[in-house]
Nucleic acid binder design. Sequence first.
DNA 1: GCCTTCAATACCTTCTGGGTATCGACAATG
DNA 2: CATTGTCGATACCCAGAAGGTATTGAAGGC
Lengths: 304, 304
Amino acid sequence: MDLRQLRYFCAVVREGHFGRAAASLGIAQPPLTRQIQNLERRLGIELLHRTQKKFEVTQAGLLLYERARRLLDGADQAVDDVRRLGSGETGRLTVGFAPSNAFTLLPPVVTRFRSAYPDVELELRQLTTSNLVTSLESGSLDVALLRPPLSSRSLQIVTLIREPFLALVPSTHRLAARRAMQLRQFAGEPFVMYSRAGLPLLHARVMDMCRRAHFSPRIVQYADQIHTVAGFVDAGLGVAIAPSTVTRFNMPGLRILQIAETPVPLAMAMAWRTGTATGLVRNFTRIAREAAAAWQAAQPREAA
Amino acid sequence: MDLRQLRYFCAVVREGHFGRAAASLGIAQPPLTRQIQNLERRLGIELLHRTQKKFEVTQAGLLLYERARRLLDGADQAVDDVRRLGSGETGRLTVGFAPSNAFTLLPPVVTRFRSAYPDVELELRQLTTSNLVTSLESGSLDVALLRPPLSSRSLQIVTLIREPFLALVPSTHRLAARRAMQLRQFAGEPFVMYSRAGLPLLHARVMDMCRRAHFSPRIVQYADQIHTVAGFVDAGLGVAIAPSTVTRFNMPGLRILQIAETPVPLAMAMAWRTGTATGLVRNFTRIAREAAAAWQAAQPREAA
DNA sequence: GCCTTCAATACCTTCTGGGTATCGACAATG
DNA sequence: CATTGTCGATACCCAGAAGGTATTGAAGGC
């Protein structure tokens, strides 16, 4: 069977006239006549009963017309659905994210994606960074939001945003009125630190900053979430260093200062399996980039 | 959309291997590769994700596979149904018949047709000869069994059987022991005659025979069915002339003789609209011819 | 490290589908 | 009654697509 011939036949039946049917199909009349003849020959059935100059549709022709219309509609629908699925307008996308961005980048990305692709079923999974990587590699995640660095030849990584590090002091602190400070001014200060287990990357980064500033922090408290650290500083337990996300917290006893040394910012990235060319992932990464740019653009006025 | 490409794609997905798929399709591998590429290009979607040497079916490809299989099945089914309808293996056929053959030719024809084409819906209508003709011409009948002659340019007529006329006498009649007789021997005999209203053709034919034999029948009784006429003769009311159907009746008091003049036999014919080329009519007329031949073949040993 | 396997590519041939010109037949119309 | 217009069918030509053969390039198995 050939859908072209069915399409032609339907046009002839619908128009009741070879010339008009040919015009509606955008072809000339002779090829149309021939295709109908071919169709009849192939089926071995008379579909149109010719009575010199005019024709009438036979019973068999009428049946074929009904069936053909349904087939053609089905074919169009199938093409449409496959295109939508392939282009990522529909389907199911599993997104992994680290706890660290549950309250930062994730919400705007998800919101933006949902409104752009309402027909996509979005599944969100909070995992540790190492689990994110293995899940991405095994294919149980399509894409993940996580913190670099990460080393995996099979994953594609794009940095979405870079958060500068800021210094946190209680409002009662001697530096509270300043706009900026130097890291060595925290030497000997009671220090609120990220737990090595809960936030290994932040722990390492902050420890490294202190080391570069030639002092070892006098740690008086550990916490394993950024906003917990900020909360301890707010409560006056000590000072801390945190990514600019903290400017989003509303804590009356907290003062936020710029760091003169401007440490390498804390990056947030997005990763997916290299070679994954599905429209879903393509669309999600585009949306994520847009959301990150918007987020980044909204940040500086507070963090600058 | 092109069904060929869908068929090829399904084969590739089913076999999971271009070479085997090509073999199962009866084509070489390179054209198959190209067709799949064309299909992907036309849809603008990656259906098979190639990873050097092997490939895996994408989500979109899987969806297309499901849809394509249903489309292909639907197309095959449609072709099959149309073929069956067009070839007369299915559908609805309206057959008209005259009262005169309700008990002769019609039953074997219908039986034979039913067993040959059990899926055809057969509608039988008993009508007068003139109504048969007008119904055929108007299209409300597809085919009819009737007695010639009839004149209609738009109808195709085929004679199915020819029944010789026979003479009927009661077993007490002076001719009862003879095998044959001459028509003039019925001159003056009490005669059972077909009513002009009920069986105009038989009435005319018998009257004509008598006229050709130079006598006018002394009619003592009219009847409007053949078996009623035979019944009256069986009861001893008189003699009669009847078509060979009467040999099928089992009447102890009835003797059947051949007529020396061998009048032109009584024909039974079949008619349909010229130009009607539907498989149903073609099949029915073929079956009717076969049934008539069988009926005719079973006749002579009694009527000879 | 060599050989096999599998899809992709290059190139050629054939056949199918579409286009133009024209025919033949019917129908309407003056 | 002749003429003209309409409609489907036919004849012929051309372009493009589909299939075939030979070959390549890259992985994977021994």
